[in-house]
Design a protein around this nucleic acid. Structure first.
Lengths: 117, 117
DNA sequence: TCCATATTTCGACTATTATCGAAATATGGA
DNA sequence: TCCATATTTCGATAATAGTCGAAATATGGA
């Protein structure tokens, strides 16, 4: 996962409603939930939810599959895992004191070109 | 960490320049780096960087401490760790297949009030 | 004190995000 | 085929984010 994809994924989660949507879909994973059910549970207009679902989908965090008359939204497990690994390995530099866990090694050189004052 | 704080932290990281800044500060943690050095390394106007540093600071992800004439910015290790734990425990529901690691237990009920279609 | 330097704040502007109702599209069943 | 339902797209609008140069503020040293 490169920076651009990571920023897209982070942007997608950086909204109260979308965070709630994502959590709901994580809780039901790997099953999907119809758009209407999500809208109803979160008390938001169908058109607003549709906008946010499309943001999450474009970021790759959720998938949409039509099932009869419903469109089921579900977390993309691989993409979610990739984001977590990006944050842990690349962003937190694999340091347990930052990540709260034994670190994964960074996949890129995070110090390149940095000159000190 | 509640949803509001998490959204603030995610928003702060959801920008290419701020993600680069954050990574630089993670790489140098726990040492801080002067604003000017960051601006120079990333090739951005001082005023623009100042704006982004303030976003990161307001989100609690970095701290600022004056040291002589410089203001040193450094990652807030505790806040970073809290964010990671929030994502792992509350957001990923502690599931290894989502988090890429043995899970922490969620600290809240993520399924409350969800009615199925 | 006065100047050079480090950083932030201000101002002005552009672009993007978010909202919701209404209208359009798509699907399955009668 | 025709209708009911699920969802998205389209407007229109308000709010926020992002950019940079110029001006303001703060610190340390001569």
């Amino acid at each position: 996962m490169d920076d651009t994809h990571a920023v897209n994924a982070l942007s997608a989660l950086a909204h109260p409603l979308r965070l709630q949507v994502f959590r709901m879909l994580v809780a039901t994973a790997p099953e999907g939930v119809p758009a209407g059910t999500i809208a109803e549970n979160l008390g938001v207009a169908a058109s607003s939810l549709s906008f946010h679902l499309s943001q999450l989908q474009q970021a790759g965090l959720v998938t949409a599959t039509r099932h009869q008359r419903f469109i089921l939204y579900a977390t993309d497990i691989g993409a979610t895992r990739e984001l977590m690994e990006f944050l842990t390995a690349d962003c937190c530099d694999g340091r347990p004191e930052l990540c709260g866990r034994p670190g994964l090694a960074p996949t890129c050189d995070t110090t390149k070109g940095l000159s000190r004052p």
